[in-house]
């Protein structure tokens, strides 16, 4: 389970220091342990598709990286730096807000429910953080925002409010909003699960385009197996809070080694 990095160089990714490293990470909610001593290394620019049954802990895994959930134990490193801890005199101490914000600036996230700000127009949704977090001028922020909105095909909706957009359009705004912060690592949390079937494709197309640009590290929790197969360098199958099996998409989908992976994929194919 530890030699994963070597398996992932199928589109020219060099063996290098991982940009994300989970070490013995556990997470409990009350009595329920949803992540169990999990290890995972992610190489820079790697695209990882995280699959598994619902309740397996896959969403929790990326929410901890976004600092939305705090690990119960273990450490997470981002770009060589501890995320939830600081090293003080060789001891690990819990990180303060300042430290969290600095490390967090390298990570962005797209949510299942979009979570757009309903009281702001599309343009303000995208410029809010660049202006107030990055400190850009309004002109500069708007210029960047418009570039991003153009990329997701919504340049003509700048003055619309989220409620005036379809689910697919809202999710594309959310993608532009995350991209404009220029994170190194982007997390996708079942981003098409809340969409009507006919709107899924437009969102996936945008994500695919970002993936093809190459240099962004992406962790995608998804139920879209075909999509995961197309864009991921590596598939990680999680069940009961543990990584059961991982490897290149062809291997996982064509020739899963583990019984539970086979069961999951069989059931999944039957339902779809």
């Amino acid at each position: 389970m530890s030699e994963i990095v070597t398996e992932t160089s199928n589109n020219g990714i060099q063996n290098s220091e991982p940009i994300v490293r989970y070490q013995k990470v556990s997470k409990s909610f009350g009595d329920i342990e949803v992540i169990k001593e999990l290890d995972l290394d992610v190489a820079p620019a790697e695209k990882i598709g995280i699959i598994g049954p619902s309740g397996s802990g896959k969403t929790t895994l990326i929410r901890m990286l976004m600092t939305l959930e705090k690990p119960t134990s273990g450490t997470i490193e981002v770009d060589g730096e501890l995320l939830w801890h600081k090293r003080v005199n060789g001891n690990l101490v819990p990180a303060d807000e300042k430290h969290l914000r600095r490390v967090r600036s390298k990570v962005g996230m797209i949510f299942q429910q979009f979570n757009l700000f309903p009281h702001m127009t599309v343009l303000r949704n995208v410029t809010e953080a660049p202006i107030h977090v990055l400190g850009l001028s309004r002109e500069e922020a708007e210029e960047r925002a418009i570039t991003m909105l153009e990329k997701v095909g919504l340049k003509d909706k700048l003055d619309h409010y989220p409620r005036q957009l379809s689910g697919g359009q809202q999710q594309r705004v959310a993608i532009a909003r995350a991209l404009v912060m220029n994170p190194k690592i982007m997390l996708f949390d079942e981003v098409t699960s809340a969409l009507d079937p006919e709107l899924v494709e437009e969102v996936l197309a945008v994500i695919k385009e970002i993936a093809l640009e190459g240099n962004m590290t992406m962790l995608l929790v998804t139920h879209e197996m075909q999509f995961a197969r197309e864009i991921a360098d590596r598939i990680v199958f999680i069940s009961d809070g543990r990584i059961i099996e991982q490897g290149p998409p062809e291997e996982i989908f064509e020739n899963p080694k583990h019984e539970r992976t086979r069961n999951f994929l069989r059931r999944f194919n039957k339902n779809n």
């Binding site: 976004m66 600092t67 914000r101 967090r104 600036s105 700000f117 953080a129 977090v133 995350a178």
Partner: peptide, 16 residues
């Protein structure tokens, strides 16, 4: 206000 709004703010690295 739904929790997702706060989470979106955190994901955009906004201060509390």
């Amino acid at each position: 206000i739904p929790k997702g709004q706060t989470e979106a703010g955190i994901a955009l690295n906004m201060s509390p």
